[in-house]
Structure formats: structure tokens, C-alpha cells
Amino acid sequence: MALLTLLAVVTVAIIMQRSLFGVVVLFSIYSFLMASVMMVLDAVDVAMTEASVGAGVSTVIFLATLHLIKTTEMRQVNVKLAPMLLSVVTGGALIWGSMILPPFGRASNPIHQHVAPHYLENSIKETTVPNVVTSVLADYRGFDTLGETTVIFTAGIGVLLLLRGARRRGRNGEDRDAS
């Protein structure tokens, strides 16, 4: 609970912060907090991925972008009423709706009755992998992972094409670190 509150505080700081460098650093902190929350919620694999990808790689990519666009300050912004109203109304509706969700952390919740017990019982028998997350990811739902890899491949090609075109025109002759 304390961690979650801390997350909310960091997010408010990100909204307030005007220096783009500060925003990126705060976002890195946010990702590490998120990884700790995942750890507390028993999602160790997700916590590891979030710490390395969310806090590590994405921070590097953001910093590389800041380096390329040579801007670290954003302009003065004032509080805009319409987006604020939109967020508050949507958030209020969602919170109102979430109050009838099953309470946190009960073993009798519907989510724990469906396919998860099957995975937990048969994973060792069928795949001999003790880490159920790995066996579901690579074995029971391997096609999901294949699709994910395709998406990353496509995104990688997109990034390379966009940035290679930029370099060929050579307006600012810098090379881009591949990320």
C-alpha cells in the first residue's frame, strides 16, 4: 500500500516537472517502484522484466532521444481545464465501477477458478518446468510469444528505417546508438 501511494506521488511529480531530463529520471524511478510493486504481488518474472526493460532500456532510449533533439526544457504550460475534467470524470466512473470487483487477494475470486489451476497442477507433468510462468509463456501459449516477437521485429525495422533516412540526409551528422 505504501509503495502504491509512493507511485502516485511520483506520477504527480512527473506531471508537474517541466525539465524533460527530470521527467525521464522520474520515469525511471517510477519504473523501479513499479517493479517493486510487482515483486510484492508475487510476479517475480514481471518484476525482473520491468526493472530491466522499463527502468533500464526505456530510460536509455528516452535519453538518446533527448540527445538527438537537443532539447531539455519544455515550454511553460498552464493547467488546462478540459483535459483535467475529462480525466477526473473518467477516473471517477472507473473507480465507481471498480468498487464491485472482487476484493483483493482472496483465493475464492473467479480469476483463480478458471484455467490457472490446470496450469499449476499439470505444468510439472506436461512440461517438466517448475516455473509455471515460463512453461505457460513458451509452451502452452507459444504462439502468443511468436506474435510478440513479430511485433518487436516490425517495430525494430520501423525505427531503423526512420533513423537511417534521417542520417542519409545528414543534416546533423550524428550517429544513433542502436537500441
Binding site: 522484466t49 520491468e50 522499463g54 480469476i111 490457472a116 505457460v136 509463456l137 501459449r141
Partner: peptide, 13 residues
């Protein structure tokens, strides 16, 4: 429950 963990691993990447 391991299932959400798997889905979110994919989503993060």
C-alpha cells in the same frame, strides 16, 4: 495466478 504474469510479460516487451 501465473496467467496474468505471462500476458503482462508479453505486453511489457
Amino acid at each position: 495466478n501465473p496467467l496474468p504474469h505471462v500476458l503482462i510479460l508479453t505486453a511489457i516487451v
